[in-house]
Every structure is written in structure tokens, then in C-alpha cells.
Amino acid sequence: MTQTTSQSTFTPRVFSGIKPSGGLTMGNYLGAIKRFVGMQGDMQTIYCVVDMHAITVWQDPAELAKATREVAAGYLASGLDPAQSILFNQSAVAAHAELGWIFNCVARVGWMNRMTQFKDKAGANAEKVSLGLYAYPALMAADILLYHATHVPVGEDQKQHVELTRDIGKKFNHDFKTDFFPETIPVIDGPATRVMNLRDGTKKMSKSGESDMERINMTDDADQIAKKFKKARTDPDALPDTMEGLKDRPEAKNLVEIYAALDDRSPDDVIAEYAGAGWGKFKPALADLAVAKLSPISTEMARLMDDPAEIDRILANGAVKAREIAEPILQQTYDIVGLLRPAR
């Protein structure tokens, strides 16, 4: 018998995750983790280290395990409270892969062909990349809908994948004449939801950039943070009195938006304060602010990484809580599709 759920009855629930590959940057913090922490208490929050997504490209096994713990440490050091939010690593909940396969059978090849991130990552070698890299948006949809998540905080570059999640959920509901999966809303708000490179304001801050000076690593100490901001690329002009004046100044716009995000202010407020100022004034102020906000996180991350057993304990406890939500939803999905399982 097909089971249905009214859209209005879904519990407001947040889900999002970060891939453990290459180390956390300030882009991950401002674009994701800081926002995750800020959503605690507003509705049920579920956050994940998406280690299964990481292996769509080759990962050294020992480094993957370390990177998974480092992302978890970044969450915790930034203020994520395991008593308020569920925190776990994706591979610890097998239902992600199980629902991912069902969604592989729901999603259409044409939808996957339109995913711009695959095109960007595969480049000219599309025939040689893993099938997982091509199909991972279906697994991302499973990550979200496995918890009937209604809200997904993401950066602008992930909006297309959340829209695909909605398409997959809608097609499943249509094909099986049910309202089982909710329509998920991407949450994209605030300054610096897409943090750019400190040496090239037209490129996203990346873990894999050629120079370490391009990014702020969340493991950088106070001296490294200050040095990178003071040496960040700018232009010869002073700051204007409105954000509109930064329209064609990507490096300047990036630094103003980073300042605003770190200080919980609007970019307009920051530009009003520093209108007419030169970089000799603004960059040291930004460096001091970044050190004050970020170095305590890097210090706490180092402390946590010295106790991997504690990180593993928190992740394991979170996985138990995640399974309690995910397993009934997966079993109902199996019933809807008509897949038989041994009697329990």
C-alpha cells in the first residue's frame, strides 16, 4: 500500500554536510559551518561529514580518516553542540547509500548532464572520472531526503544540487503517487556565502589552490592568518562609500564581505564605516578581526585533534541518533517502491 505524507506535516529539519578532502578553509567556515551553528535551536539540525562523497576521487585512506576527524573538529570548535545538533559521518549510516541507489533509478541522465560542477571538475577528462563523481548528486539528494530535511544551508555553487534534490523528490512522489518526500528549500543568505581567493577575487577560495597564500586554513595560527590578510591582493583605489562602487573590484569586494561575515554585520555597514579608507587601514583591521574570530577555533581544533577517540565517540553517538531518524524513512521508501525485506 502506498503511504502518503502531507507537505504541511513535515517536521522543520535542517541537513547539510561538508566533504573531508584537503582540509577546511575559511570559506568552509563562513560559507557553511558558521551558518550551521547559527541555525541551532531554530529547528532540528543534522550535520554530516560526507566522507562517501570524498571518495568520488581517489583519497589516501589514512588521510581520509584524518580529514574526516578534522572536519568534525572544525564543526565542534566553531560552536556546534552535539546536545543540540546531530553530528556524524555519512558512511556510518548505511541508509545513505541504500537510498542513493533508489534515487539513481529515479534521476534521469539528462539531469546529471546539466550539473555544472561535474563539468567543472571533470573538464576534458570526463570519460576517465569515476561513475561516482558523475552520479553523486543523486547521493546528495539521498543525504537530504533520508531525513525528510526541509531546509539545506548551502553556498551558491550548491544551489543547483538542491534544486536537483527537489526534482528527484517530486519525480519519486509523482511516480509512486505519494507525497512522501518534502520539497526542500535551499538556504542561501548573508555575506560571504561564497568566499573568494585572496590572490584572485574571481576564483573561489579552495583547498586545492596552488598557493597557500590564496586561502585561510582553519588550522592556521594567528601569525599566519594576519600575514595572509595583510598580503591579500587589492587594487590601488580607496574604498568607496557604497557596495555598488565595488562592482568591478572583485578582490576589494571579497575582503569587505569577509569582514562583514566575520563581524556579523552587513557589507553596507562595513563600507559605510571605511568609506574613503585606504588598504593600509582596512587590511590590518581585517587581519585583527580575523585573528580574534578564527585563531580560537584553530586552537580548539588542535586540541580536539589530539584526542581522536573523543571525536570518534561524538561521531558514533551522532550516527546512532541519525539512524533513528533515517531507518524508518528508508523502510517506508522500500515499502513504497515494493522492495521486500526479511521480516523483522
Rank of each mutant, 00 (worst) to 15 (best):
P82A: 00
E327V: 15
P82F: 00
L146D: 05
E127Y: 08
F181A: 03
G100F: 00
W58E: 14
P182V: 08
T234K: 15
P20Y: 11
A302P: 15
L133K: 05
P61G: 04
L289Y: 03
F229R: 08
D221E: 11
L145T: 02
P186R: 02
T56E: 07
D51A: 08
A322D: 12
T9L: 12
H161M: 01
S91M: 06
D220G: 09
A222D: 09
K247T: 14
G132V: 02
E127P: 15
V256Y: 01
E156A: 08
R341L: 15
M26N: 05
R233T: 15
K204D: 11
I102M: 10
Q59I: 09
G41M: 00
Y274F: 03
R344H: 14
Q3K: 02
R265Y: 03
P267Q: 10
R69D: 03
V337E: 09
E214I: 11
L255F: 08
H148C: 09
D237F: 03
Q117A: 07
A62I: 13
I185K: 15
E324C: 10
A343P: 12
K203H: 11
V57Y: 10
A275P: 12
G245A: 07
I46A: 01
K283T: 08
P236C: 05
I325Y: 03
D120M: 02
A149R: 00
A94I: 10
S21P: 00
A302E: 14
D263Q: 14
S266V: 06
D268S: 14
A135N: 15
